[in-house]
């Protein structure tokens, strides 16, 4: 089937904004609806739009499968290590280890922002990989 010009063009222009929106959701997760998981899914949907409109090879070039895999694994380990850091500092698992800051600011709510980023990247990579594997075969 021939590829539609409109689809390729629009999706190419749209993808950066989708990714940006995903990042916005991740970084404002502790202040407004959103957060790591939702932002991560939006990130993944951006990559998937590129995948569907431009085919596998182009996506492979900008988002190699190996890197996605590695991102996912490292992020989980980082999350666990952050949790264990609380344990090492004499508090309990996953207790806050950073300053709380002022409510409503972007760097606030302790390490929630950090956790949101970790989860966002992990979920984005994970969902993208799931769809890669399912679509390819």
């Amino acid at each position: 089937m021939e590829r539609s010009q409109i689809v390729t063009m629009v999706s190419r222009k749209l993808v950066p904004f989708i990714l940006l929106f995903g990042l916005y959701l991740i970084s404002y997760g502790h202040l407004s609806p959103g957060g790591g998981f939702q932002g991560g899914v939006v990130l993944a949907s951006g990559i998937l739009l590129l995948f569907l409109s431009h085919g596998f090879t182009l996506v492979q070039r900008s988002f190699p499968e190996r890197h996605l895999n590695l991102t996912e694994l490292v992020m989980v380990l980082l999350f666990l290590l952050l949790g264990l850091a609380g344990l090492l500092l004499g508090k309990s698992f996953l207790s806050n280890i950073l300053l709380l800051g002022e409510a409503g600011e972007i760097p606030s709510a302790g390490f929630i922002l950090l956790l949101n980023m970790i989860i966002g990247l992990k979920v984005g990579a994970g969902i993208t990989l799931i769809c890669f594997y399912l679509f390819r075969s």
Partner: peptide
């Protein structure tokens, strides 16, 4: 429900892989 949705996605992905 956020957690339940995440679990639902995992289940769906695994089930689809099995169906494939």
């Amino acid at each position: 429900m956020l957690t339940a949705i995440v679990i639902g996605i995992c289940l769906t992905a695994l089930a689809l892989a099995l169906v494939l």
